Amino acid sequence: MVTSIKGGEKAIDASHRIVAKRRRGDPNVARLSVEQIREQLSLAVDRVMNEGSLYDPTLAALAIKQSEGDLIEAIYLLRAYRSTIPRFGFTKPLDTAAMLVRRRISTTHKDIPGGQFLGPTYDYTHRLLDFSLMQDEEDEDGLPVQAVEQGGSLTLRHDAGFLNRTDLVEDELPADDRPVADLTREPMNFPSSRDQRLQNLVRGDEGFLMGLCYSTMRGYGRNHPYVAEMRHGDVSVTLDIPEIGLEVGIGTIGVTECRTIHLTVGKPDIPPHYTRGYGLLFGHCERKALSVAVVDRALRGAEFGEEKRYPSQDEEFVLSHSDSVAASGLVQHLKLPHYVDFQAEQQLLKQLREDYNKRARRAASKEHDHD
């Protein structure tokens, strides 16, 4: 129960002014611009876009600035804004096989068709503070990565090596004509469909999902994955305009796609094979894409006759608790006034204690009479 209050407008206005002053910080330090956040804090921007369900780097950067870097608050701001935007059409499914690749790796094979492209990654960096970043001057390390050298102009087929050409891995699910679920307009249903689950996971809190992924790898889910392919790059967005009978490209967006494979003993009537997990997210967010793919596979356990024993396999637990905005709202409402609730609870507690004391006195009286 969220308790509403009346009055206190002056105090609230004063709080807003204090927040604005704290956000600005020392006036002798240059103001941080939205453009700087968008261009130099791109990984934070990508996370806010994913969990805010809106691809707009500039608005995500504005939300980060407005929230003083509190990403959950920024996600909340972006979702609130998204709810005010009219919908005028539906784009076609993204063709990630036609992605202009900036980064692409596979952990199942060293040599894969098209090659491996390390691209931008922190995977091989030393976790040491780089004090040269405290300097204001630009240096050679700030030069942009050349897309052509990193394979940015290549179109690479999915998955690695021979796996797609054997029956070792389950087939990709065929496309169908069912309407795709939209969690921004419709509530989650249980049992859920996979498209609902994947949307929920993309909108879910990265830390929560990473913890669930970690739990499966430590034995709470029998779900150790291999990364068949991780790719990051740009894909075209196409809009179908039925009035003129044309499909029109309306731009490109950056995405990260992760495909995992998992050894599955399976049902008694099906031979052991590899099954799939999948994650597709805005921007460059490999850690979350991998977490989404692993949790996606964990939630598919019923398809393969696996017993539901662990949190990562329970769709109601995972999907009902992964949303950072919902979680933050319920947790932070505890800071609002609960005077009436607390007084009612105190009265209940007082009555319970009186009942307890009466029972204790009766019990002591009976024991005394028995003696």
Results as ranks from 00 to 15, higher is better:
Glu307Thr: 15
Asn50Trp: 03
Ala60Glu: 09
Asp205Lys: 01
Glu170His: 08
Thr155Lys: 13
Phe162Glu: 15
Ile105Pro: 00
Gly277Ile: 04
Gly305Phe: 04
Met210His: 04
Ser132Ala: 05
Gly114Lys: 01
Gly245His: 15
Ile37Ser: 02
Val235Leu: 14
Thr58Gly: 01
Gln135Phe: 12
Cys258Ala: 14
Thr184Leu: 13
Asp177Val: 11
Ser83Arg: 06
His109Met: 12
Asn200Ser: 15
Gly283Asp: 08
Val101Tyr: 07
Ser312His: 02
Ser215His: 13
Leu183His: 09
Lys350Met: 15
Ala302Val: 07
Ala14Ser: 07
Leu156Phe: 14
Ala98Gln: 13
Ser312Tyr: 09
Lys6Gly: 00
His158Val: 14
His158Arg: 15
Lys308Trp: 10
Cys258Arg: 09
Asp46Tyr: 12
Gly301Thr: 10
Val292Pro: 06
Glu286Val: 10
His232Gly: 08
Ile244Phe: 03
Glu170Val: 07
Ile261Glu: 08
Thr166Asn: 05
Lys358Gln: 13
Glu9Tyr: 06
Gly89Asn: 06
Met210Phe: 00
Asp111Tyr: 01
Leu54Asp: 13
Leu319Thr: 04
Phe304Tyr: 12
Cys285Asn: 11
Leu239Val: 01
Asp371Val: 12
Asp177Met: 13
Ala147Glu: 15
Asp195Lys: 05
Ala363Pro: 04
Thr108Trp: 02
Pro272Arg: 04
Thr166Glu: 11
Ala344Thr: 11
Arg23Glu: 15
Val248Met: 00
Cys285Gly: 08
His368Cys: 14
Ile112Phe: 03
Gln313Asp: 09
Gly142Arg: 08
Thr125Ile: 06
Thr96Phe: 12
Arg23Gln: 10
Val148Lys: 15
Thr96Glu: 11
Tyr278Ala: 08
Ala20Leu: 15
Gly277Thr: 02
Arg178Leu: 12
Asp240Gln: 08
Val340Gly: 00
Leu212Arg: 02
Val180Gly: 06
Ala14Gln: 02
Ala44His: 05
Glu367Gln: 14
Ala98Phe: 10
Ser193Leu: 09
Leu330Gly: 15
Pro179Thr: 08
Arg82Trp: 03
Met188Tyr: 06
Glu345Gln: 13
Glu257His: 13
Met217Thr: 07
Val19Thr: 13
Ser153Phe: 13
Asp176Tyr: 06
Pro271Leu: 03
Leu239Asp: 01
Asp314Ser: 06
Pro120His: 03
Gly7Ala: 00
His109Trp: 05
Ser365Tyr: 03
Gly114Cys: 10
Asp323Asn: 14
Leu319Ala: 02
Lys350Glu: 12
Tyr278Thr: 01
His273Gly: 03
Ile18Thr: 15
Arg127Ile: 11
